[in-house]
Design a protein around this nucleic acid. Structure first.
Length: 369
RNA sequence: GGAGGGAUUCCCGAGUGGCUAAAGGGAGCAGACUGUAAAUCUGCCGUCGACGACUUCGGUGGUUCGAAUCCACCUCCCUCCA
């Protein structure tokens, strides 16, 4: 086994739990938020800043790194950790999400997905086997099965077909995997259909991956539906292995999912909205770009201990945004990543202390969507 | 003193008789963003009691059914010649 997962404390009132994942590059405390560094960089942040924000693990992406600079180049560099100067754990996504997000320029067959590169239009075939070999070349601690993420809304037949293909591809990923110092996670699909979600969760669980992910959620469906899907899916995934909700999310989504037994999260929201002038806080979002902050000489959040909040005001950050200065992206990214990590740390502490439910209720009492 | 050219909505800048409240860009304002084709995208951007009305294109007067667009004079700016 490439990783080990230990549950430390379980909530009495919900399915929430705390734990620790040990990987070849160190330990991760769960629940965990993983900043996304698609192209071997968490956009606008240095690895030092990512680390100082409290990140214990970051993501990379198979599709993007395969196209540029090329996984062989990363391998020659000594692997992704060394290449990007991040010696803590890394998880790479398989390219399954690009099957979804690049829907218009890709074609799916049983063999795999054929993409027209978004960079130069050239054609590339990503198969489960290829996704495994790329991820083995990149050398992340946790790698993901190549899945087919379906859009919302979608017809039952279409979701069923994608789900079944995802299961077949999951097995092929397992069969193709050759390195034993990387943990492979399977991915549950099934759209918003309870029966398909159940079926998918059971089948993926039965394949005995080292961890299990739930994909295909937070793709535009109402939050209630997503939570319903989690209620159905999470309990069917083995308790003894990490559960990873892919692509989520905002603070309110995270805490709801933790209550349903999710241990791992990743999301681009933090760094993306940062680059678009928005700060996340435990009380809701602040569009620092807005005129009302022009002469607001207070920190984004006076309780936040991040580098940005310790040193800069809303007015200054707004000025940087308006002046199109790159530091705006950096300062807001630092804050958004840390606020999410600090939040999830508080969640861990509340679970540990046995008052998670109270913490959750208090959070929602103060949170403005 | 003479000869040309020009003044357009916050800025730059199209527009030379009706399809023009006036292209486009910038600035400004707001919204979106959830396994990153994103430092992106979308909307608003003369005024108002606003699916309609009213006032605008240096100023004044005129031609015309109708003018930012044509004419006269005036004001200011630029270039060239003395």
């Amino acid at each position: 086994m490439a990783i080990s997962f230990e549950i430390k404390k379980k909530c009495k009132n919900t399915a929430a739990r705390t734990g620790r994942i040990d990987t070849p590059h160190g330990s991760i405390n769960t629940p965990v938020y993983m900043p996304v560094g698609t192209q071997a960089t968490v956009k606008a942040m240095t690895p030092r800043q990512v680390e100082e924000a409290g990140a214990e693990i970051v993501l990379g992406n198979t599709y993007h790194l395969y196209l540029r600079p090329g996984h062989e180049t990363v391998k020659k560099a000594g692997g992704l950790h060394k290449f990007m100067a991040w010696d803590k754990p890394i998880l790479t996504d398989s390219g399954g999400f690009q099957v979804f997000s690049l829907g218009a320029i890709r074609k799916i067959t049983e063999r795999g997905a054929e993409f027209s590169s978004h960079l130069d239009g050239s054609k590339h075939m990503l198969t489960p086997e290829k996704a495994m070999s790329i991820q083995e070349a990149l050398g992340a601690d946790i790698i993901m099965a190549f899945d087919e993420c379906t859009e919302y809304p979608a017809e039952y037949e279409q979701v069923l077909a994608a789900m079944e293909r995802t299961h077949r591809w999951a097995q092929r990923c397992k069969d193709a995997k050759s390195r034993d110092d990387q943990a492979l996670f399977g991915i549950v699909q099934g759209g918003m259909f309870p029966e398909l979600r159940k079926k998918s969760a059971k089948e993926i669980a039965d394949m005995d991956f080292e961890g299990n992910a739930i994909g295909g959620l937070s793709v535009g469906e109402p939050k209630d539906i997503m939570n319903d899907m989690l209620d159905i899916t999470a309990p069917l995934l083995p308790e003894s292995k990490p559960r990873y909700l892919m692509g989520v999310g905002s603070l309110d989504y995270i805490i709801d999912a933790v209550a349903r037994g999710i241990d791992m999260f990743d999301c681009v929201l933090q760094t993306r909205v940062a680059r678009n002038g928005t700060a996340l806080t435990k009380r809701g979002k602040l569009v620092i770009r807005n005129a009302k902050y022009a002469e607001d000489f207070t920190p984004i959040d006076d309780k936040c201990t991040c580098y940005t909040c310790r040193n800069f005001t809303r007015a200054y950050i707004r000025h940087l945004i308006k002046a199109n200065e790159i530091l705006a992206s950096t300062l807001l990214s630092i804050h958004n990543v840390q606020v999410t990590i600090d939040f999830i740390k508080e969640i861990r502490e509340s679970i540990q202390n046995g008052d998670f439910l109270e913490y959750k209720n208090e959070f929602f009492a103060n949170y403005n969507v």
